[in-house]
Amino acid sequence: METKSGGNLEAVLRAGHFAITGELGPPRGANVEAVHKKAAYLKDKVDAVNITDNQTAVVRMSSWATSLLVIQDGLEPNYQMVCRDRNRLAMQADILGAYAHGIRNMLCLSGDHQKFGDHPHSKGVFDIDSIQLIAMVRRMRDEGKFLSGEDIDTPPRIFIGAAANPFAEPFEWRITRLAKKVAAGADFIQTQCIYNMEKFRRWIHLANEEGLTEKVFILAGVTPFKSLGMAKYMKNSVPGMDVPDHLIKRLQGAKGKKGAIAAEGIKIACEQIQEFREMKGVAGVHLMAIEWEHKVPQIVEQAGLLPRPRVDGGNGGAPAAGE
């Protein structure tokens, strides 16, 4: 199959399979074993795994370095890059290096503001924004040119991802912003964690009406609740997150036996995944089991997403050779 990147995630999506991506947060240190341990839970359970980039603006092992470690484990990384920490020189240099080492997917993000992290008074770079980053990667890949317009000797072939939050205000503008990301060159979209299914249905309906879902693969974001406390935190303290009361009540109703709330959280996530599979315009799910990677095999199994497809032209998650 012809793909832009030669990667597995792209091949799975282009073959029409319902894709699943996972997430792996790098360690706060050089703990290689911690990465391999998390990767082992995800192996053969997801088509690619997002490697977060100093998420919540807290210093961690770098995203590209952790991506290389999971390639060793036979997982395909989706290398996240935020605009907060590096300028256009560093970004382009890292993209070339990442591709040279076999990274085939990127998720282009603005990044959580440094104010939320462990170095709140650091200087945020924001030389370019996430949409400009998407356009830059596309230009590097399709035109073989740096942002400056100069030629690249062996352009990086990257499957370009972007994020979308269907729940942040202004709601009506969120589809326009999605359209801007598609116009800039996004090949796939991973959404913010979805809890308000009704609002998400409205969003995806608009995306279908605008013809956007024919141009971009949309992976619906799913984060299972581990506890009632987490659900309440998501509802009350995370801007742009929309957690309906009926889900909180449902978790409260599961109180009792040890692990009952977590089991209910997983059940809710699996029900969501079923709905997404039947929803027009949704090409897959992005499962963000935050610091809960060991539950991914169970969730993916319970959601009926196993075994993962092997697609010709994809690398089945195996490391791609540098070119």
Binding site: C83, S110, Q132, E169, P170, W173, G240
Partner: peptide, 12 residues
């Protein structure tokens, strides 16, 4: 974030 193509996903 000095975005030129905003808003980001963090608008309340």
């Amino acid at each position: 974030k000095s975005l030129f193509n905003g808003p980001c996903g963090g608008t309340r």
